[in-house]
Design a protein around this nucleic acid. Sequence first.
DNA 1: TTGTAGGCGTTATCAG
DNA 2: CTGATAACGCCTACAA
Lengths: 343, 343
Amino acid sequence: MARASYTLEDVAREAGVSPSTVSRVINGSARVRPGKLKAVLEAIDRLGYQPNLMAKGLAQGKSLTIGVMVQEISSPFYGEIIKGIEQGLEGTLYHPVFSTGHWQVEQEMEALRVLSARQIDALIVLDGLAPEEYFLGLARKMPLVLFGRRIEGLERNTLLVDNLQGAYRGTRHLIELGHTRIVHIAGPAHHPDARSRLEGYRKALEDAGIPFDPELVVEGDYMETSGVLAVESLLSRRVQFSAIFAANDQMAMGVMLALYRRGIRVPEDISLVGFDDLPGSSYMTPPLTTVRQPTLELGREAARAALMMLTGQPYEPPVLSTSLIVRESTAMLRVGRMAGWGR
Amino acid sequence: MARASYTLEDVAREAGVSPSTVSRVINGSARVRPGKLKAVLEAIDRLGYQPNLMAKGLAQGKSLTIGVMVQEISSPFYGEIIKGIEQGLEGTLYHPVFSTGHWQVEQEMEALRVLSARQIDALIVLDGLAPEEYFLGLARKMPLVLFGRRIEGLERNTLLVDNLQGAYRGTRHLIELGHTRIVHIAGPAHHPDARSRLEGYRKALEDAGIPFDPELVVEGDYMETSGVLAVESLLSRRVQFSAIFAANDQMAMGVMLALYRRGIRVPEDISLVGFDDLPGSSYMTPPLTTVRQPTLELGREAARAALMMLTGQPYEPPVLSTSLIVRESTAMLRVGRMAGWGR
DNA sequence: TTGTAGGCGTTATCAG
DNA sequence: CTGATAACGCCTACAA
């Protein structure tokens, strides 16, 4: 474990100037005589000097770090958002630091605590579960960007995706293909996005004059397994349906597997629509028709929001919209092709 | 943006003791009279005091941070490793900080630079592309853990997965099912793991007395697309084969799609084996038979290695082994069922 | 057992 | 334009 790295003072000595001058050169915080500037620059790369961000942070009372609380870092959905955040921070001096909550309030609070001990300058929270007051408190201390959670008083800190509209589109697509017995595999009831999607589904049915049938709605937990469980429950209950609108792609994947197991074909027998458009969804067999969420843009926007707030600029959060990506898991309804029929 | 947080000095004042005493209490670095201890503890939580890690870091010359250079943070494969690293660091004072290289040497060096500016105490590099000397230099400065790259002189810092053996097993599984015309979709030739897998494939053939046919090997880039491209190339070249061993699951997914498009069924017409066992692979249709890499364990081990080195304990890296997970994408060879036959 | 003083690497203030 | 000098919040001798 060799020598520590060089300090600003070393550079100053090497260049024959004072530390303050070196600091000025590095930060461009004031004009410096060309001759000295050159000397400093040369000294810097002769020594391979790298400023110590911790010291800089201490001195400035900033850490140049943006905390990101995410429930699962290894999830295709959050992965894209994270990527977006990274992209949005690229080129700035800020760096993201992640901490995971694993959908556990306790762990989430701990994650938040860890981040705050690291003196993060701003915080991005994806699907926060902690109590409202906690976030209200945080927002008073630092720039806060929320996604997946609505809290009164924090509207300006919240990034919204139009889930209702997205679900409406996904459902209407199926209706336009002639389907009327459309199953909805919903997300967890406590998740606001899941509720909006369910609502969009209902609204699309309503607008088409198709009566809402509670029997067609099954609640899942956004994981693949719950997709297979949902199908199995439907089938064992002999529910009739010709299409499924899953509240996310992961559950849709489970659905595909369950149908495959039963020898039910997609889209010939059952049409399937997902939500999210995960990176892998276009490679499912068949490629999944889904409602795309602009995850990458979302991440970038979150970063942008944090940066704007950090520089005290006024920020007005946009409502990001979804789009229907029609691939191969949906097809026109064919009579006599309905799962659950006659047995 | 309310008040800054409390400092150790505030706590000291509140508790009626000196700052050093507070410090001692927090770090347990020396005995403190019970009375004062209690006073300090109370003051701490009355104020909700949180130590400033940057200041602590500066003072101690440590950052309590472990840098992780990963090529893609949003990839199912690295995602699992990252999760493992997090798990391995849980309960310690260390926290991981990620930076991505995007398979670009330039970006990787930049990522490494960013990490080092943050004074990381140890570094974990997943599939590093930078020049050998660079890593040799890094290893001299701090604990370094490498994965996916072998560098002479850094054997003790390198976590190895037995890729050759894994590929051997995957291939032999196909051979045991009666297949002899087995395609291998290899990873990028410059990637050491990809080379080992190709080697394992060859060795399995050789041991079974099946002649190696270069026509059956196609090089991919580990992404889904290259899986579909490979199949298309094979088919257009009228190559005959009844099974495919893909060097990773993502390419296998591409393969499935390409076969599906051509109406070729898995496993009835073609058997397919992947490598990695990504979280989603058990939900492919059909669920993929694959060679499992212990990604989670790998991450945990990387963390453990870093921690051991950090505390100066001797560390001897293990060779992690793979295991064959048989699911539904492979089946006995049936005559007359070979793609490319007779046209 | 406890407090005081100095230092970690930077930046900011203030003379010059 | 430039150089001292004093913080930033914490830790660690050293002295008491």
